[in-house]
């Protein structure tokens, strides 16, 4: 037992190094005082970060991405909440099939989503703009939001709502005092993860954006210019840190859901 435990621990450590090693290069080379991404390192510099301050196209792209990420994560969270509430509270005709259908974008190759959506937009003669990306991202994020919200609603035992009504509260009060606080960790998790996914998503944005690039589309364009590499690394470092903060927050709220889940599981066993 002891022996195999060590073997597995070695496995997971190697795995984590493999998983994280590329990401470590981002900060290393974004502070490196050289135009070439190569060893040996030549010296410490923050010049690549400063360069980012004067990139107007970057700032526009950032603004576009923020708009898209905020809008699509809110939309997806609304949809996910509706699906989760429907499937956790009611048993209805076509429930399984329709919920599964809503989850399909989870495994569909993104290129196919992108091509499909673009085909329809072209057929309809619609102009591509930020809103078309918002729609595409909402479609992509809704499955994630749905899964998170289903988990959040699962711990909302129906008896809690009934108890609140029984103790004299109105339906509105019950929503405000019981339902909302109970599922709010889920709502926040869903918003955070939706935001992160949208902010990082490239292909759908690549297909559906018009003349206004998103952040990943901007970064993609930078890849062609070797001279832009170090500042792209600097941008990557910032994105990495933002993602880390958001994901850590997400993790914090996800654990809140689990705490409630654990509690309601105890309820179920009785």
């Amino acid at each position: 037992m002891k022996q195999s435990s060590k073997y597995f621990k070695a496995c997971i450590v190697i795995f984590l190094i493999f998983l994280y090693a590329p990401a470590f290069l981002l900060p290393i080379f974004s502070f490196n005082d050289s135009k070439v991404i190569a060893f040996p390192l030549s010296g410490f510099s923050t010049v690549w970060f400063q360069e980012l301050l004067y990139e107007d196209t970057l700032h526009d792209a950032l603004r576009n991405s923020l708009f898209i990420a905020v809008s699509s994560s809110i939309l997806a969270t609304v949809f996910g909440t509706l699906v989760a509430r429907a499937s956790s509270r009611y048993q209805f005709f076509g429930q399984r099939a329709s919920v599964t259908f809503i989850l399909v974008p989870l495994i569909l190759p993104e290129i196919i989503l992108g091509v499909c959506l673009l085909t329809v937009l072209i057929q309809l003669g619609l102009n591509l703009n930020l809103w078309t990306v918002v729609l595409g991202h909402t479609l992509l994020i809704t499955p994630f939001s749905t899964l998170i919200m289903v988990s959040a609603f699962n711990n909302l035992d129906i008896s809690l709502e009934e108890a609140s009504l029984d103790l004299g509260m109105s339906a509105v009060q019950t929503f405000r005092l019981i339902i909302l606080p109970m599922v709010s960790p889920g709502l926040i998790s869903s918003l955070l993860i939706g935001f992160v996914i949208s902010l990082d998503e490239f292909i759908i944005a690549f297909f559906l954006t018009g003349v206004e690039p998103t952040l990943p589309v901007y970064i993609w364009a930078q890849f062609r210019f070797p001279a832009k590499l170090p500042s792209t690394m600097a941008l990557g470092t910032i994105l990495l840190i933002v993602s880390l903060i958001l994901v850590s927050l997400f993790e914090y709220f996800r654990r809140r859901i689990e705490l409630y889940n654990h509690y309601s599981m105890e309820l179920d066993q009785k």
Binding site: D157, E162, S164, L259, Y260, L267, D268
Partner: peptide, 20 residues
């Protein structure tokens, strides 16, 4: 008359204690 307007109160089988 809905439950919140009745002079009755209930102890639920799983107690339905609000966890938050």
């Amino acid at each position: 008359v809905p439950p919140n307007k009745r002079p009755t109160n209930m102890v639920f089988q799983n107690y339905a204690i609000f966890p938050h």
